[in-house]
């Protein structure tokens, strides 16, 4: 019996390793999982977010009226209604300002933009990278590696795509690397994330390169994935290393990911054509 169990475990292990290796080469199961799992989770989270949003609005508008005393009910009710209106108007004004900012956003020349709403964050035991889920997928023309931005700056790039939802790898993730250039001194470097609550590392800045605290780092456009000249981060700390050939530079992201609700997915039609040609082996 024991021998049989050992054999079964060995066969299962070999089958698993075979499957894992085959998927590593073909990514067939990854695509299948994204098209089923990511899609299903997106559809679970999207209506929930809508209900949460509605519930919060309902709470703001009505619930605090419950404790109004009876004798001055009419007056207090009126006062509360005015407060509620003011609260709602403030929320609307904030939303209008945000939307106006979004509408006024010009996409870089040669790039097309597409608005998307964030419906979820990293989730599950294998969801260890800094990611968010947006409600645009391959059915909307979204492809892997497309840049994701907002009016404040760069957010990240598309990592995984399902028919109606996509996963965005945020710039704050340690696996994100982005070629950047400083706005004032035009010093080129590579920005990499260190986690959601940590500043970005700005790597490979030579010791003699001029760089100021507070200087804005922009996308350099190298590699062609991101458009050139888009704001990324602000330099917060510069140290001269005694043991390295490069300066130790830290920068804070210009985008507050946690308060972000909408983003833009950028698409360069030239890049798309090239990628389609590569995919088709042309």
């Amino acid at each position: 019996m024991f021998k049989k169990c050992i054999w079964i475990i060995l066969v299962c292990l070999i089958a698993y390793l075979g499957l894992y290796t085959w998927n590593w080469k073909t990514h067939y199961l990854d695509r299948l999982a994204a098209n089923t799992g990511l899609e299903a989770v997106g559809w679970i989270l999207k209506p929930g977010n809508y209900v949460l949003d509605r519930g919060t609005k309902l709470w703001n508008r009505y619930l605090y009226l419950v404790d109004v005393r009876r004798e001055n009910e009419r007056l207090k009710e009126r006062l509360d209604r005015i407060r509620s209106d003011v609260h709602e108007l403030r929320a609307t004004a904030r939303e209008a300002a945000r939307l106006r900012e979004l509408l006024g956003f010009d996409s870089p020349s040669g790039w097309e933009r597409q608005g998307a709403r964030i419906v979820g964050h990293k989730l599950g035991i294998t969801g260890i990278l800094e990611t968010v889920i947006v409600d645009k997928g391959s059915a909307h023309g979204v492809r892997r590696d497309q840049p994701v931005v907002c009016p404040a700056g760069v957010v990240g790039r598309i990592y995984k795509v399902s028919p109606h939802f996509s996963q965005v790898l945020l710039l704050s993730d340690p696996n994100s690397r982005l070629p950047v250039i400083s706005r004032k001194h035009r010093v080129q470097s590579i920005a990499s994330g260190q986690g959601s609550d940590s500043p970005l590392n700005v790597n490979y800045v030579p010791l003699n390169a001029p760089l100021d605290n507070g200087e804005i780092m922009l996308t350099s456009g190298l590699a062609g994935v991101f458009p050139k000249g888009y704001p990324v981060a602000r330099i917060t700390d510069i140290q001269i290393s005694e043991v390295s050939l490069f300066q130790v530079v830290r920068a804070e992201l210009l985008v507050h990911i946690r308060s972000l609700e909408e983003v833009f997915i950028l698409n360069n039609p030239d890049n798309s054509e090239k990628r389609e040609m590569l995919d088709s082996g042309g």
Partner: peptide, 21 residues
């Protein structure tokens, strides 16, 4: 559940299957 988790996860397919197994 494996497909659900792997689809939304950030790693290549196999982690969730290994975990539940």
């Amino acid at each position: 559940w494996t497909f659900l988790q792997e689809g939304v996860g950030s790693l290549a397919f196999g982690g969730m299957f290994l975990f539940l197994s």
